[in-house]
Design a protein around this nucleic acid. Structure first.
Lengths: 335, 335
DNA sequence: CTGAAAGCGCTTACAG
DNA sequence: CTGAAAGCGCTTACAG
């Protein structure tokens, strides 16, 4: 069975193909009656326009690329689904790409991707959204793109983010409200912008409550389970260990919990542990983790929405900031 | 800067566009010298053929759809990357789609997807690969597709899978070799084919070693953390609880571990726990989980390879069975 | 408000 | 081994 074409629809509706095209693309200047007739025929024939033909004739691909680099599976799946959903609503296609290179090689990789797919736009996730090389390459191609949680805010492109600093501050204040006065902190990956923000929020909360900042209670981390385990061991073997530990993400918080289990330290009776992100693992550790809910799905949905707005109007929409919320579970308790 | 077209290449190489096309598509009947010259020009001009034009003229989309339904993020990300990698090698594009419907609605959803994207083929992951409605719909469209870990083997299409039964049998024998004689088992989702296979392997191992099958030590599960927690609580509060528990996947094994932690049961001293899949969580629980490594990436890579073979040769390649391996970590020990 | 013509950048079918 | 012509199914640019 041959696929229906725009000609079939035009013939059946008794109009020119240009009119069908107008209806399908929501263009003005079609009599309401004509529009209804065409739409009826489209439905009856189960007609779907050919993406290839539209792309070729219209000189655009109706394709959006989502690029990322090795973040956690739980995070990226949420992001994918948020972006997909928004694309689907607009009959755009989403194409996901995991980057492998770094620096200039990364720029080449992305450039090649754009050349081959002819994507109309790109959604860039952290930490790629902080790569100067990548941003420069996209700028040079003048490809419309949008960033999720970027570091440098001012730019010709919009972005979607959340307030990492305030979120970390609130979580710290929650721990303080439980009576904790010596709180350990595990930093995120040094190349991620959010890492600095979260540390800043932590420090602000301490300062606000007159608690001195103790550098020895702050350890480096890489956003990965192992680094949390290692940092947790360091903190918990100190002569005077903290009574609470706030890790910059859930994976590292899970590592801290393992370190505590190893040493027979009870959570939350002897130690409170808090994370950040509210990914799947937060509910799959014992006890379940107190954490900050990061709206990954919504961030991606909103970012994709901004991109589609740009593509449609040629204007640059305003950036979007989304809310977070503290999720208090069983890993934290009174001192 | 205008994009390079096949005409630019043809002109620069002093040949007809048809010759350029032959070279780019690896068609025969081109003098080696001509081929080299064309290739040089392609490189020099940084020419990339337009997917839209190829698709429109060739009546194919060079697009493969990967469909799945809500499996764990860690699993699906591995699968995505395996399929992507193989597609990239062949200059095909991968388009991922998360299904939401079930039964006939699912069939409609997929049919609509195929109509809109014009995908040349489809990679179907479990449990969708077991949906009779879906398979029937694809058959009706005569769309080439390939299944990962399907239940019904004989079909016009090939598949890639692993030996779940033997893997589960081996893991059970490992527990037996540690001295365990009363082993609890948590079943997977009843609608997943692999669930039955894993239970079967468990039973075979018991039988082989003369251990009676005790229905009361076998609990239902849904492949989710919560169901593992619940089943674990049931098993561990029995008057005579098992000394080892084998959960049909890692998420449920993590649930069992939480149940044990709740009750102050030490792992592996008082209880051994084993999982299945070797996803990220297996290394993020304490103690780290003994499990079966399922080659998700390779399964997807191989399945996609089979599909591409089909598309090229119009023949149906043989199914592929991949190996697994036991990963012995710290959650299991001698009785 | 509507339509006829040209053309997007390739592949197919055919000729030599 | 190579090429000239037609055509894939749409949109753009223009005319009325």
């Amino acid at each position: 069975m041959r696929r229906k074409t725009i000609d079939d629809v035009a013939k059946a509706a008794g109009v020119a193909i240009k009119t069908v095209s107008r209806v399908l693309n929501d263009e003005p200047n079609v009599k309401e009656e004509t529009r209804a007739r065409v739409l009826a025929v489209v439905k009856e024939l189960n007609y779907h326009p050919s993406l290839s033909a539209r792309s070729l004739a219209g000189n655009r691909s109706y394709l959006i690329a989502l690029v990322y680099e090795n973040p956690s599976a739980n995070y990226i799946v949420d992001v994918q689904h948020g972006a997909m959903e928004r694309c689907r609503e607009e009959r755009f296609q989403l194409f996901v790409h995991q980057c492998s290179g770094r620096g200039e090689e990364l720029a080449r990789e992305i450039t090649g991707l754009v050349d081959q797919t002819r994507a109309d736009g790109m959604v860039v996730t952290p930490p790629l959204s902080e790569s100067a090389d990548l941003i420069a390459a996209l700028d040079q191609r003048s490809l419309p793109f949008v960033r999720i949680a970027p570091n440098e805010k001012p730019h010709r492109t919009p972005y979607a983010d959340m307030d990492d600093e305030n979120a970390a501050c609130e979580m710290t204040e929650y721990l303080i409200s439980l009576g904790h006065r010596q709180i350990g902190f595990i930093k995120g990956h040094p190349e991620h912008f959010a890492s600095g923000q979260r540390l800043k929020g932590f420090r602000i909360a301490l300062q606000r409550h007159g608690i001195p900042y103790e550098p020895d209670d702050v350890k480096d981390g890489l956003f990965e389970f192992e680094s949390g385990l290692e940092a947790g061991r360091q903190l918990l073997t100190k002569p005077k260990p903290p009574t609470a530990i706030f890790a910059s993400n859930d994976d590292m918080a899970a590592g801290v919990m393992m370190a505590a289990h190893e040493m027979g330290i009870e959570i939350p009776r002897q130690l409170s542990v808090a994370g950040f992100d509210d990914t799947y693992i937060a509910r799959a550790v014992w006890p379940q983790l107190t954490t900050v809910h990061q709206p990954s799905y919504d961030l991606a949905y909103s970012a994709t929405d901004l991109l589609l707005q740009m593509l449609k109007s040629q204007k640059v929409p305003k950036p979007v900031r989304l809310g977070y919320r503290l999720v208090c579970r069983a890993s934290t308790g009174p001192r």
